[in-house]
Every structure is written in C-alpha cells, then in structure tokens.
Design a binder for these strands. Sequence first.
DNA 1: GACATCACTTGCAAAATGATAGTAACTGCC
DNA 2: GGCAGTTACTATCATTTTGCAAGTGATGTC
Lengths: 176, 176
Amino acid sequence: MKKTNLDEMPCPIARALDRVGEWWSILILRDAFYGVSRFDEFEKSLGIAPNMLARRLNGLVEAGLLERRPYQTKPVRYEYVLTDMGRDFRPVMLALMTWGNKYFATEGLAMFLVDERDGHMVDAVLTDRHTGDPITRENHAMYPGPAASERMRTRLENNIARRAAERAAAAMEKRA
Amino acid sequence: MKKTNLDEMPCPIARALDRVGEWWSILILRDAFYGVSRFDEFEKSLGIAPNMLARRLNGLVEAGLLERRPYQTKPVRYEYVLTDMGRDFRPVMLALMTWGNKYFATEGLAMFLVDERDGHMVDAVLTDRHTGDPITRENHAMYPGPAASERMRTRLENNIARRAAERAAAAMEKRA
DNA sequence: GACATCACTTGCAAAATGATAGTAACTGCC
DNA sequence: GGCAGTTACTATCATTTTGCAAGTGATGTC
C-alpha cells in the first residue's frame, strides 16, 4: 500500500493488494462480513489500537470497500458497512479460509463454511462458471490481455511457452 | 505479520495472513506462479530492493510456501520454488485477480484466466465441491468449529442469529 | 454533577521499509 | 593474470509505519 503508481502496475493482483494489502485490512473485512460495523466493536474484536483502526477504516472507505454512514444523530455516530465492492471480496476471504484451514488448523477447525439450506459443511473450490470444471494447474493458465505491460506480457508468455514445452515432453514420454 | 501469538488466534484467515500478509509476499508468489524462481528475476520483475526481497523470500521459506534449493554448485546458487503449500495458494491468487479485474481494470484486462484445452477465457467462481452450487451470501455462512475461541464463537453465532432473523422477516414479508 | 458510552485524536518510541552501496564466489575474455 | 560480468545476496541508515498510552468531545443516564 504505497508508492505504486497505477500506470506502471496494470496487474489486477497488484491493484487489488493496493486496496487491501495492509496488515489489518483483511481482518477488518472479515469482521465486517460477520456483521461487525461499529468502531468499538472492531476495536474489541480485533484488539487493535484505536488510531490504527481509524487509519485502516479510512483507508478502506477511500478504497471503496466500506461506506461510512451515520446511524444516529445527537451525537452523530458513524458505522462502517460493506459496499458492493467490499461484498464481492468474499470469495477471496473464503479462499484464504480454505487454505488456512487446510494448513494451519492444527488443533481442529475454528470455522468452516456451511450451506444453510441443509446445514452441510462446504468445501469451496474455484471452478469455471461456464463449464463447471474445477480450475487446475494442468488445464488453466494466466494469459496477458490488451492492457498488459511489456514486462508482464513477457513473463506470462514465457510461462505459457514453458508449459507447452512441458506438455509436449510429457506427451513424448507417454508415447515411449 | 507480527506479534500475533497463535493461541489467541485460531482464525484460519488470520493464520493465513500471518504467512502471506506482508506487502510484497503475495506479489512474490504471483511471480513464482509464472515460473520465476531466481533472486535476480524477482528483483527485476518486481522492482523491489534486494534487502527487502531477501527478507520476504526468507519469510516465505520459513512459512513453508517456498523452498530454497541449489540449482548449481561452483558457485552455489539458490532458487526459490513453490512447495505444495505454496501451490495450494493459487485459488486465493485467482480470486484476488478476479476481484481486481472486476473493479480496477479500467484500461482493459491486463491478464485473465484461460482454459488451455480449448483456449476459452474463464470466469472463476467459488463453488461447493460436493454439489457444484456457487457459494452465495444468501445460502452460505461461516460457522464456528470446535477450535473456535470464545470471541469468535460469539461473533459467528451473532451473525448466524441475525441472518436467521432476517430470513424470517423476509419470509413474513413475502407471505403478506 | 459524576459517570458511562462511543468514535475518535495526539504524542511518541519502537519497528519495518526501502534506497544505495558493498561483498563474495565464481566464469569468460583478452 | 587481470578485469569485466553474473548472481545472490548483506550492511548501513534515513524515512515511514506501527502501535501503546493517554486524552477529547458530544451526549445520555443515574
């Protein structure tokens, strides 16, 4: 979350991190997904210092993930609620949770995803919306688009070429 | 990426962030997914100062996402490659990319996901591995598991109760 | 009128970041 | 044999960020 000027950085991952890449931001969003919205709730829930919390909340509001809105007058008090952009961040959070559960839930699960229609525990996987196929290393790769920088295009094309070569070698292997 | 002692923090999201939550870490992983593996490649690709790069690479190795291994002797030179844990981080990256593309690709796409079997562009969605249903705000929620802290359990249960009440109210509305 | 609530701000020490420069172990070239 | 080039770093240090502790202001409650 720093000097990165966007012209030099068309990468969607870098731009996303520019919004949520600071230490507390994602934890604040996590709480927002639980329905936490008030300053003191965040403060207690996270154990964060109030000045840090104020800085991060302002940052997330500026970034467009949270909206600061008054919930009472006399005295005016504000709460912080997710915008559409913020709500759309949920898949990232769930992917992070899935990964965390897989590797760091050494004393058992602390939380998991449930389908509330029938109460079953859900294993979240990324799939192709169109075909329904799971995304895999074997079948899927990133490709440069029209807005890619030169550097990015080169990197991605190198990767694509390398993968093609590997596949060709594997096919040879199989035939032999 | 700091003082957080794990006993106080069973949340899988917090633990995940403890490993990859620092500013450069995820960008380094992004490059690793493109096949970048050498110190100077990362340095050039990211435009990062070498001391920072060394710190982050060491961090990611310690965290278990990268493996440092010699690729030549005379002189010994090391490269950094993804471990299984690192490779499993890919869905998080792709979710981040999807979100970034949706909101910040103002000059057009810089990169996108392709199914290389037929070359079609993929829209990645999180789904239930078992049923294939997409994960939605309406149908899915986080539930506390056996390893949840008291605070976390309370927060999640509050959220679940709030959602149930909202659903009940919505059902009333519909009936009327 | 003392106390509590809530959303913050201020001041400051400690820690992290990052620009610049340097090192170490080689290889290849003339 | 010497000198540039490659690669993977480390060292130094100014700047920036973090985060603890304390304070503030508007209001309502006992």
